[in-house]
């Protein structure tokens, strides 16, 4: 290192830096999709669904199973799974509502409930698939696009674009449809909704269903980006909530910015300090956010 001319060293680190930032942006786009669901459940409905990463990993394994056995593209699988995950989400909300929310016990028992769900999903997946890493096969896993010094691996680019598509669809749904606006309203004024003859519980059920449905897509994207084993979900808890809080609970644009930011910082950390440190970044982010900007980046 010491013998290398200064000019060459700077070129290398500039290349490295630039590529790390691009990789981080791609990763961040994917994080946005992962967080979209939590942004709805935690940000808008005030339901602390810590089991969300468990549903994402479930989505990964379904994509894996169908892909390996029938050769279907993982993203296509996830789109087929949307209604099933939606129904699953609606069912989980119904149980949550009847058992905890209605009785005002969500803070202690509701949290324990979701924790139990997260845990049960993880252990079930271990029992069915074992603890080995699993991966999918698709034509875009492997090749890269090259623009000058920048590498764009399709393995990252495709999930990022799909994620942004999902994100845009949710944003459009929430701002443009009646149900979407009702979801926004449910977080602010339940009484007003009731006056409009809208059942807030039904709205919440739909919103939670959508939140879980996004996990099907996020799961498929996750297993395209990296091999997956059942406990990977836990790494995402810190990330997802860090992004959600930093983005300012429930704000979709804020979530996107925070996701890109975390992606870049993680990518830089992985490039310059080694990938084993990356999970610590999200936590640092979360703690700093909680300590200094609990209202989020764009703070209300």
């Amino acid at each position: 290192m010491a013998a290398m001319p200064v000019q060459a060293r700077m070129d290398i680190s500039f290349d490295l830096l630039f590529n790390a930032i691009v990789a981080g942006l791609l990763l961040g786009g994917f994080y946005a999709a992962v967080t979209a669901g939590v942004s709805i459940s935690f940000g808008m409905l005030d339901i602390v669904n810590i089991a969300h990463p468990g549903f994402i990993i479930l989505g990964s394994y379904i994509a894996y199973f169908v892909n390996i056995n029938f050769g279907v593209d993982p993203i296509v699988v996830s789109i087929i799974m949307l209604p099933i995950f939606f129904a699953l989400g609606a069912f989980v909300y119904q149980v949550y509502y009847l058992s905890f929310e209605r009785r005002g016990q969500e803070s202690l028992r509701g949290l324990a409930f979701f924790f139990g769900l997260l845990f049960v999903t993880e252990v079930t997946l271990i029992l069915v698939f074992g603890v080995d890493y699993r991966y999918v096969e698709a034509s875009y896993i492997g090749p890269s696009l090259h623009f000058g010094i920048v590498d764009l691996p399709l393995r990252m680019l495709v999930p990022c674009l799909a994620a942004l598509g999902l994100f845009a669809a949710i944003e459009l749904f929430i701002t443009r449809t009646f149900t979407g606006r009702a979801i926004m309203a449910v977080s602010q004024d339940q009484l007003a909704l009731q006056l409009m003859a809208v059942d807030p519980i039904r709205i919440k059920r739909i919103a939670f269903g959508i939140s879980i449905a996004t996990a099907a897509v996020a799961g498929a994207l996750l297993i395209i980006i990296q091999p997956v084993e059942p406990s990977v979900g836990r790494e995402y808890i810190g990330r997802v909530f860090a992004i959600c809080v930093l983005g300012g609970l429930g704000s979709m644009p804020g979530t996107l910015i925070a996701a890109l930011l975390l992606g870049v910082v993680e990518s830089l950390t992985a490039t310059f300090y080694g990938p084993s440190w990356a999970p610590a970044v999200a936590f640092g982010f979360l703690l700093l956010t909680l300590a200094f900007r609990p209202a989020g980046l764009l703070g209300r």
């Binding site: 803070s107 836990r234 808890i237 909530f241 860090a242 084993s276 703690l287 909680l290």
Partner: peptide, 22 residues
């Protein structure tokens, strides 16, 4: 802050402390 933040932070902390020890 609100109560649920503490719970989330403890979850994240477990992952990070493990990263540090590893």
């Amino acid at each position: 802050l609100r109560g649920s933040f503490f719970a989330i932070a403890t979850l994240a902390m477990a992952v990070v402390l493990q990263t540090l020890i590893v």
